[in-house]
């Protein structure tokens, strides 16, 4: 009898140790997630600088891309446009941002006009090489000019194709991988707004 109680108590100790461990691990993970605040400081087409600070209080949907891409970028911008339409009045709490990874060419070909054709709310940013590189590194994403004679201008870009969501305090919340339907993104945002 006493032996059974002793075993039961030891099991209780083991279980509580595991629970405490899991709780600590989760708290640590949440802290780490909260600590990740990627940043950008980049000019729009008029030259006005925009930073992540500016959008505190809003949810920010960030996409890295280039406008000479005929497939992924228009498809993703279409999804974002659909999300903004479907959010209705709540859309004013969401700021979609397109960061060019091919800034010189995108500035020359009219970034704003292109993005406005999808949705007027999308903010297009195109910096110089250093500020673009800084944003790419801060978001821990990937963008690399890929040599290919077949592409216009003689190269194309391999780039991270997800949408990144930052919260109202600038903290990284999640990413939506390429191909996530607009309805799923809208539902996720509505759950937060």
């Amino acid at each position: 009898m006493l032996k059974t109680i002793r075993i039961a108590l030891w099991i209780a100790v083991a279980v509580s140790l595991v629970v405490v461990g899991v709780l600590l691990w989760r708290a640590d993970r949440q802290e780490q997630a909260a600590a990740f605040r990627p940043a950008f400081s980049l000019p729009d087409e008029t030259g006005a600088i925009h930073t992540t600070e500016e959008f505190k209080g809003k949810y920010v949907l960030v996409f890295f891309g280039f406008t000479n891409c005929p497939d992924i970028c228009p498809t993703t911008m279409s999804e974002v446009a659909q999300v903004m339409d479907d959010l209705g009045p709540q859309a004013e709490k969401v700021q979609p941002v397109f960061i060019s990874v091919d800034p010189a060419r995108d500035r020359a070909s009219g970034l704003d006009e292109y993005l406005a054709a999808f949705h007027p709310a999308i903010l297009g940013l195109a910096g110089d090489e250093a500020s673009t590189r800084a944003a790419v590194e801060s978001f821990k994403v990937f963008a690399d000019p890929e040599k290919a004679a077949s592409a216009p201008g003689g190269y194309t870009m391999s780039h991270s194709s997800s949408l990144y969501l930052l919260g109202p305090r600038g903290d990284w919340l999640r990413q939506f991988e390429y191909g996530t339907p607009a309805d799923d993104i809208t539902a996720d945002l509505k759950g937060r707004l």
């Binding site: 994403v141 990937f142 077949s150 391999s158 194709s161 990413q175 991988e177």
Partner: peptide
């Protein structure tokens, strides 16, 4: 798309296997 990074390699040819439907489609 590999590990979240998209690249757009040139395709020399696209196979259209017997009895199959192949779409050129977004993504």
């Amino acid at each position: 798309t590999k590990d979240g990074v998209a690249s757009m390699p040139h395709a020399d040819a696209i196979d259209i296997p017997a009895g199959k439907t192949v779409s050129l489609a977004p993504g």
